[in-house]
Design a protein around this nucleic acid. Sequence first.
DNA 1: TGAATTCTGGACCAATCGGTCCAGAATGGC
DNA 2: GCCATTCTGGACCGATTGGTCCAGAATTCA
Lengths: 197, 197
Amino acid sequence: MARPVEFERDQALTQAVGLFWRQGYQAASLPDLTTGMGISRSSLYAAFGDKRALFIECLDLYARRTLGLLAAARAEHPPLEALRQFFERSFGQPGCLLVNTTLEMADVDDGLSAHAVARLAEVEAGFEACLREAGCDAVQAAELAAVLMLVNQGLRVSSRRNLSADDLKAQLDTTFRILAAAIPAPGPATPSSGMPS
Amino acid sequence: MARPVEFERDQALTQAVGLFWRQGYQAASLPDLTTGMGISRSSLYAAFGDKRALFIECLDLYARRTLGLLAAARAEHPPLEALRQFFERSFGQPGCLLVNTTLEMADVDDGLSAHAVARLAEVEAGFEACLREAGCDAVQAAELAAVLMLVNQGLRVSSRRNLSADDLKAQLDTTFRILAAAIPAPGPATPSSGMPS
DNA sequence: TGAATTCTGGACCAATCGGTCCAGAATGGC
DNA sequence: GCCATTCTGGACCGATTGGTCCAGAATTCA
C-alpha cells in the first residue's frame, strides 16, 4: 500500500547484460553497473541480490536471447543458411558473453564458468537440431554440431580482434564453403546448396 | 661491486606466464604473483617494472614459445600432420594465453588486447607458411590460415570447457577430416584447386 | 675485516573493490 | 491532510587492490 513502482527490472537487466558483455565480469564495477543500469546501489542489491547473482541472471537472459536468435533464423531460412545467418548477425557484437565468461572465469570462479559452459551446451544442442533438419543422421549431426560450436567459439573470438567486417565475412564464407562439402544435400533433389563462390 | 645475484629472472617469468595463463590478467593479484614466482614485491617491481609490463613480457614469451612449438612440429612431421600435432599437444593446457587475453582485455585495456592480437597474427602467419609448404597457393594459404586460426581459437576455448580428452580429440579429428578435403594433395601433382561437390 | 653497494622482506600508502545501512523522499490508502 | 509502507541516494564499512619505500641482510672489493 505504498510506492509500488520498482523501476523497470527487465530494462535494467538488459543494460547489465550489455555491460558484462563488453567489459567482462571482473572489470564491470559496481559504479559501472549502477550508472549503466540507471539505478542506485540499494536498488540493485534489493532487486538482484548481489553482483554475482545479477551476473547469473545476465548469463541466463543472454542464453535465452541467443537461442531465440537461432530459432528466428531457422524460421526464416533453410537450416544451413539459418546457421550462416546466425553467425553473420553476430559480427558487430563484442563476442559471445558465454564464451567470454567461460574463459574469464575458468580457474577463477568455476561455478560461473560451469554455468556459462552449460548454456553453451544448450546452444550446441540447437545446432544439432538444425543439422538434423538439414538431413544429417544422429551421429553426423552430433559430430558436426561440435564442429559448429568450434566455429562459433572461434568466430566470437575473432569478433573481438577488431578485424574488418570483410575479414570476418571472408572467414565465415571459407568456413562454410568447406563445411558445406561435408553436409549432405538438403533436399532429395537439386543438391545445389546455394553457396556461390 | 656488490651482491650481483638477482635470482633467476627467466624462471620467475616462466612462473608468471603460468599464473596469468591460468587465472588471467585481472585475477592474478600481486600476492598471487610474488608467491608463484617465489620473489618479493620489491624484486618484482625492480626486475619487471609493474604488473602490466610483466604481463607484456609474459605475452611475448608465450608467443615465442608457441611459435617454437609450431616450428618443432613442422620439423618432425609433414605440414598437415604438424598442424594436427600442434593442436593436439595443446589439449591439457588452460587455453591459449593470447586468446584469453584478447577476450579479457578487449574494451578494458585496448593496448593489452591489441598486443595479444598482434602476437596471434604472427601465429597465423606460421599457419600460412605451413600451408604453403603443404602445396597451397598464396591465396588459398591465406584463406585457410584464417580458418585454422578460427580452429585454434575455437579449440582453445574448448580446452577451458573441461570437456573430456576424448571429446576434444573428436572435435579435432572431425575438423581435420573436413579440412583435409579442402587442401590439395601434398605432392606438386594433382593441381585440382579443391572445390569438391 | 670494513666499507661500499645491491638486494629484498615487509610495513605502509591511497584508491578502489563489493556490500551494508539508514535517513529521507516518494507514493498509496484513508 | 495524514499515516503507513516502500524505495533510493549516498555515506559508510572492512578487505583487497596495485604500487612505494626503507631498514637491514647479503655480497664483493680493497
